[in-house]
Design a protein around this nucleic acid. Structure first.
Lengths: 203, 203
DNA sequence: CCACTTATGTAGCAATCGCTACAGATGTAG
DNA sequence: CTACATCTGTAGCGATTGCTACATAAGTGG
């Protein structure tokens, strides 16, 4: 029983479903119905498996959500790193928010943002779900904050500007756009919001 | 059985609990746990009544939420009308967002906003709850839009400005602040967000 | 071949969900 | 008083919840 074989998970009956495809399906259910609104029956149905397979792979409903959130923010952060490469803070925000408006109204996904629609307030026994979502949202904010710190060092942002406050502001606009999108706002409406929001970086 | 007496609800055993006090308690439960996270047992416990009294007065869990939302937005709109009296659009937004930062971190209430934390995505059978919340959020946006239209007529806002887009932007910032607040942001952090957000009205 | 380990499907667990039947209590109308 | 209408508390309904016991299948190691 050496390390090599343990990592290959070669023992026992092999798993018959693609764990990442199943995660994508689960993500969509949580996205559309929220953590508490999503039932195990819905999740297993969409994932094409039975409850024991779900619990063997993810431990619990909450474990499944965490895995889905990790996958969601991995994709999201990858997309953000491209945008953070823009030359100025203003351009980062403009490109980012416009891209966000497009993504949140992509008919391939449920409208809005999983990190917002997933559940801002939950029942007893699920108290840490909102914190879990917040921790994942904080990743984007941290990336923005570091980018704005760099922008200030480069003279792109004023000396007296507050990168943390600016990042928190963009984070709030991102969340707000997610709320509007989940309520059915159109792509054009969200793009208009983005163009107003970016004006806070003009003056 | 004339109209007068019918309105006084003078027939039958009189209700023994204060319906508005009970609504305030229910509001707090929905606020803290969301629609789906709030259970009838919690609600009746907080309201100090038993299930039959709840269902006689409000019809269903959803009916109770609607009544709580009406009460919530009534208070909110009353507060907004004061703020809309400010002389300029910029001042309306600044005062409004700063006031919001204070309210959403008031320890007397759960953090955040009922219209956001109540449930952006719900399970099957509760599909209209998110729409219900959105309809109440839209009230604030409509008030802002009309105020901004007036501001443009008065020359306060530029001729080429878009009152609808501006109102939608402020609505997004309001929702975003609600998300940050529900995740535990401090009053000072939200005030900083507000001061950045209002800069979109400066240029 | 035989152990051993892990995944799968069926079937169903205890607990909780939103909600209500029922009987008794408490008021007004006559 | 009686008749009627509404509210209240107890007690519990059927349905659904997240989750799991169990037997079997499917792979590797020897």
């Amino acid at each position: 029983m050496n390390l090599e074989r343990a990592l290959e998970r070669t023992l026992g009956r092999p798993r018959e479903f693609d764990i990442e495809k199943a995660l994508d399906e689960a993500m969509e259910i949580f996205w559309r119905h929220g953590y508490e609104g999503a039932t195990i029956a819905q999740l297993t149905g969409a994932m094409g498996i039975n409850p024991p397979s779900l619990y063997a792979a993810f431990g619990s409903k909450e474990g499944l959500l965490k895995a889905a959130l990790d996958r969601y923010t991995a994709k999201r952060n990858e997309c953000m790193r491209e945008i953070l490469a823009a030359p100025t803070a203003r351009e980062v925000v403009e490109r980012g928010l416009l891209k966000l408006a497009d993504m949140q109204t992509d008919p391939a996904n449920p409208p809005g943002c999983l990190l917002v629609a997933g559940g801002l307030a939950c029942g007893v026994g699920s108290e840490n779900i909102p914190f879990e979502l917040a921790a994942h949202r904080a990743q984007s904010e941290a990336l923005l904050r570091e980018r704005f710190i760099r922008a200030r060092e480069e003279g792109d942002l004023a000396e007296d500007s507050d990168p943390a406050a600016l990042a928190r502001y963009v984070s709030a606009v991102i969340a707000g756009i997610g709320v509007l999108a989940s309520a059915g706002a159109t792509r054009e409406e969200l793009r208009e919001v983005a163009m107003v929001a970016v004006k806070a970086f003009d003056e």
